[in-house]
């Protein structure tokens, strides 16, 4: 309970996303323990319909206003909240959101087209971030916490069909495969 209140204070006072590492250092506690408490905390906020929620992405956490108050808050802040995305950007963002972290090559394999320009634009707009994957020796891309705020979801798991599209393996139609197996057996 004490850890929960410490984390709440730290998240409350920070105006930028805090990584598990930041929190572990500040609270002088084990990362896994912190993650567990944060998951519980996030669920509590949502279940009790608080005015704020806990957003997390790539092991970074931030308190934000609740999505149901978006209209009111944006009017209060006089914040311009449009920012149209082109169909191509939206397509690339979708793939990065669902499959992230992805390499440029994987993104291009799925879209069938060179994505250098789009990646740069999305990076500049702060919708995605680039990280160096040490095992791959290559840059990988994932969406930012700012993008989740834009979507109004507290984590990528909330996206429809997330589990299905996030799968690492190339998507397969299992029904068709079963049919094939059956055929070979008959023959």
């Amino acid at each position: 309970m004490k850890l929960q209140s410490i984390l709440e204070s730290l998240l409350f006072i920070s105006n930028q996303p805090l990584s598990l590492k930041d929190l572990a250092k500040a609270a002088d506690t084990d990362i896994l323990e912190i993650k567990e408490v944060l998951i519980k905390l996030g669920r509590e906020y949502q279940e009790s319909e608080r005015g704020f929620i806990l957003v997390n992405n790539n092991d970074k956490y931030q308190l934000t206003t609740a999505p149901q108050n978006a209209d009111l808050v944006s009017r209060f802040l006089k914040e311009e909240t449009s920012g149209e995305l082109t169909p191509a950007s939206l397509e690339a963002l979708t793939i990065i959101a669902y499959r992230g972290p992805v390499t440029k090559a994987e993104l291009e394999m799925i879209r069938g087209i060179n994505c250098s320009l789009i990646l740069r634009n999305l990076l500049i707009r702060g919708l995605i971030e680039e990280l160096q994957d040490k095992t791959l020796g290559e840059a990988v891309y994932s969406v930012t916490l700012d993008f989740l705020k834009y979507l109004g979801v507290s984590s990528l798991n909330e996206l429809p069909d997330y589990e299905k599209l996030h799968a690492r393996e190339p998507l397969k139609n299992s029904v068709e495969e079963d049919d094939l197996n059956l055929e070979t057996k008959i023959n």
């Binding site: 149901q68 944006s74 109004g152």
Partner: peptide, 10 residues
């Protein structure tokens, strides 16, 4: 989802 304009503010 974006069209709902349920942006989260910090």
């Amino acid at each position: 989802l974006i069209g709902r304009k349920k942006f989260l503010f910090t």
